[in-house]
Amino acid sequence: MDLTTTAYGTWSGGRFMHFGETLDEARYRSCIQLAYEAGFRTFVTADVYGNGKADELLGEALEGIDRDSYCLVGTLGHDFYQGQRQGNRGYPRFTDPELRGPEGYLSYLRMACEKSLERCRTNHFDLVMLHNPDEAGYTNPAVWEGMEALRGEGLAGMLGIAPGPANGFTLDLIHCLEQFGDSIDWAMLILNPLEPWPVGLALPACEKFGTKVLTRVVDFGGLFFGDMKEGHEFKPGDHRAYRPDGWVEHGLEKIERMRPIADRHGLTMVQFAAIWNLSQKPVESVVPTFIQEAGDQARPIEDRIREFAVMPELRLSAEEIEEVKAIGDNTGCMMLKGASKRHETSERPDEWPMRADLLQLAGRYGLGEDW
């Protein structure tokens, strides 16, 4: 089964990514079940969330539902089996040379996939994605030979790549598509009307290589759901509290400038954000973060799920897409991850030195040399 227009991610609900209130296990499972009842037919999980706990809760929530009635997406790449967590850097990627060499990639991927499937209470993923790869994940043929083996063994129907968690990796992604595009059916990328850059630079390459795009963070940290107001206070530990001061107010001001377009089509603002994404080739699916905001006045997370479950069929015009892109233009708002001229050595799993072949690639795609 291929991905549907809307998808539900197991990072929702605050248990594994710290946004808003943390749902207890019963409510967390009930939200997944509500999502299915409301019309979601694609569910996305990652084995590293809770060291497998997200997989388990998803499997419990979907137990008894016809497996052929929904698309299941798994993501693999963080080695929490043998690797040691490195503070806020998380677990090392399975391609870390201190853990194994290329000859061990396949056995790791098979093991991780089988264990994730067991926790999800099924025997196959419709799509398996490489989760937050390091440089080896983008460049080493042994990685993608291992991913293809998962498909060949029936553990995965399709294959994909999910860069992140921070934005960027544009040149690395395009290079990966050039080298291994025949293996990559889907890419999960960050895109929304307030973050058209830098993923917008990679969309033409995804279309060129026939890679479909699932976009995450379409809600922009919950802002498009409409519950956050000027001066919003985040509870201690909420990831969004670490964003630059004023990001809520700045985002709300831009959203108000976009609102007439949403009103013209009878869309709520989160529907509008999703439709803006889906109006661009080759975006075919959107997955938000469902958050139970702190405070007694916050709208229930269940209402957010119902609102997002089924998207209207309409698409924005090319002129509307560009109008929104101009309002939300965030070019240069952050230092991009991946290959960069800032680094002479690779000291983190998501940053590495720029290579000459990537600058040549940037020239071919008209992306400039300022990386």
Rank of each mutant, 00 (worst) to 15 (best):
G14S: 02
M17C: 12
G20A: 09
E21N: 09
T22L: 12
Y28I: 08
Q33V: 12
V48A: 12
D55P: 01
G59K: 04
V73G: 12
F80Y: 14
Y81M: 12
Q82I: 08
G83Y: 07
F94M: 03
L99E: 02
L99P: 01
P102R: 05
L106Q: 12
Y108S: 09
E114F: 02
L117G: 03
E118C: 11
R121V: 02
W144M: 11
M158L: 09
G160A: 03
T170I: 12
E178K: 12
Q179G: 00
W186K: 11
L189Q: 12
P204T: 13
C206I: 01
T211N: 06
V218R: 03
D219Q: 08
G237S: 02
H239R: 12
H239K: 15
R240A: 00
P244W: 03
V248D: 02
L252R: 09
I261K: 08
D263G: 06
N277H: 09
V287W: 01
P288F: 02
D296Y: 13
A298C: 14
R306I: 06
V324D: 04
A326T: 07
N330H: 09
T331A: 15
S346P: 02
W352N: 07
L361H: 06
R364M: 04
G368H: 05
D370A: 13
W371E: 05
